[in-house]
Structures are given as C-alpha cells and as structure tokens.
Simulated scan of single mutants.
Amino acid sequence: MSIFVDNETRVVVQGITGGEGNFHTDEMIAYGTNIVAGAVPGRGGDEVNGVPVYDTVDAAARTEDADAAVVFVPPKFASDAIFEALDANLDLVVAITEGIPTQDMAKVNKRLAEVDTQLIGPNCPGIITPGEAKLGILPGNIFEPGNVGLVSRSGTLTYQVVSNLTDRNIGQTTAIGIGGDPIVGTSFIDTLDAFESDPQTEAVVMCGEIGGEDEEQAAAFITKEMDTPVAGFIAGRTAPPGKRMGHAGAIVSGSGTGTAESKINALTDAGVPVGDTPEEVAEHIDSFL
C-alpha cells in the first residue's frame, strides 16, 4: 500500500507551460505518474507534450476527473494557485514553489482548516510512492518499492537516506518531503499518523532539522500513538542560535526548544534512535526489519 498517492492518482500540473513545470511534467510522466491535465490562466486549449491545458484547475478537475495537483507557479502567484486548487476540492495539492511569502501562507493555512484537501509543501521536493507515482521533483531512480515510510523537512536529506536504504535493499512505501518553510501544510504528525495506519509500512524514517517545535511535537505523538518503529535524524547540530541555516524555518530562537539537542532528546525519550549520520539511520531501520 501507500499513503496519499498511488498509480490511480490523477494529477493536474499548475504552471505546466513554464520551464520547471514543463520539464518536471515530462519526468513525472516518464516515471508513470498519471498526469491528466495542466492548468494555466489564458492557455486553455493548448497542449503540452500530449497533456491538455485548461484555464482553471476546476475545469481541469471536472473534465479530466483529477483528484490531485502539483504547483510549479512563481512565488508571487503561488498562493493564488494553491487557493484555486483548494477551491476545486482536490484530495491532494503538492506545492513545490520556494519563496512564497509567509503572510501568504498564513492565509492559505487558515483556508486549509476549512477544507478536506491535504497540502504538502510549499518549498518541498514532493511525494513519491515508488513504482507507482511521483508528484514533484524527486529523483525516481533512487527509490525502490518496499515497507519503509519516510518523512523529511529536507529534500537533500530525503535523497541521501533513501539512497542508503536502497543500497541495503530496503524499499519504501511512500516518501514525503514536507518542506522547510515556517508554515507548511502537512506536518510530521499528519504523515506519521498516515504511516501508522498503513499496514504495509513496517518502519518509518523521520528527518528533521533545527527550528520550530515540530519534531518535539512529533516525538510526543510517537510516544502516545505509534506502534510502528521510527528512526530519526536531525540536521543542524552545529548551527549557532539565531542564524538561519538553509530553510526559512530553520531558525533557533534561543528559547530552549528548536535546537538540535532538544529535538534529539525528545526523540530519544520517545524511544526513537537518532542517527549521527544518514547511514546510521539506515542501520537502525535495518535492525527493525
């Protein structure tokens, strides 16, 4: 099984006529993703590599029976694109765009509470169920179908850990990069809960980083709600307080939470082994299986 996406997911690409959208649409189609439409205002009636383009997500969803969208729209217009996808009542929206203003995402976050759509991102690599579908920019060649779920705030860490798992012949059910911005749609807890409910997922990797309290909250959830074993990794151990390291959300305020140490301690207290390197994370997962 999988979570959120599979080979029956029908996808609209928002921004399909742009350079990034066009390129990654080809990559997603080559992987086997069921791309059924594009959506670009003013480009309705066009076609991109055999994919019909509509003026709106709603028209694309109704005509092509789509249930998911992936957003490749410039930051200035990306929140409007997300709102459009939410208004179309899709099951899933994956926002790849980096640099969306935080105040725009705050408005999106408020709207999310009023709908049933699952938003992944923004500023994320997307989601992949190996051998079935990928929505986003993940390099499909390093993934293999299997029984380990993965959730990460970092795209690069996702690729590294997955590569280490695949090298050990440990495949994945679904891998998700939830994004490193201060406000994102899908949280660690959302994803961990979905993996816990998936009968095929026998272990989970959670890759976090400094900044915020999401990992500490996830540790509390693991303690109370999860029987599936989890292994972790926390990036940013040597980052100085108050300095942003890579992601907009990776800022430690000096309040005592959000540091690598506080996150590692919380996960350790929850019974989650935390690797010093991505390879050690794969070793912990190997020991679970």
Rank of each mutant, 00 (worst) to 15 (best):
S2T: 14
I3F: 08
T9K: 09
T9Q: 13
G15F: 06
G19Q: 14
G19T: 06
F23R: 14
H24A: 08
T25M: 15
G32W: 08
A39G: 12
G42C: 10
G42R: 11
G44E: 08
V48Y: 04
T56Y: 02
A59C: 03
E64P: 02
E64G: 00
D67A: 01
A68P: 00
V71F: 00
F72A: 02
P75V: 01
F77N: 13
D80I: 04
D80E: 15
I82G: 07
E84Q: 14
A85N: 10
L90Y: 00
D91A: 13
I96G: 11
T97W: 03
G99C: 11
K110F: 00
A113V: 02
E114P: 01
E114M: 13
N123R: 06
N123P: 06
I127Q: 01
G131H: 04
E132Y: 11
L135V: 05
I137E: 06
E144D: 00
N147Y: 04
N147I: 03
V151Q: 03
G155T: 07
T158C: 14
T166R: 12
G171C: 08
G171H: 08
T174H: 00
A175T: 10
I176H: 04
D181W: 12
P182L: 12
P182M: 14
V184A: 02
G185L: 10
S187R: 07
D190F: 12
T191G: 12
S197T: 09
E202I: 00
M206F: 02
G208L: 08
E213T: 15
E215N: 07
F221V: 03
I222E: 02
I222Y: 03
K224T: 14
D227M: 02
T228D: 10
G236I: 07
P240E: 13
G246R: 05
I251R: 06
S253K: 12
I264C: 06
T268Y: 02
A270K: 01
G271F: 06
P273N: 10
V274H: 05
D276S: 15
E280C: 05
D286I: 01
F288M: 12
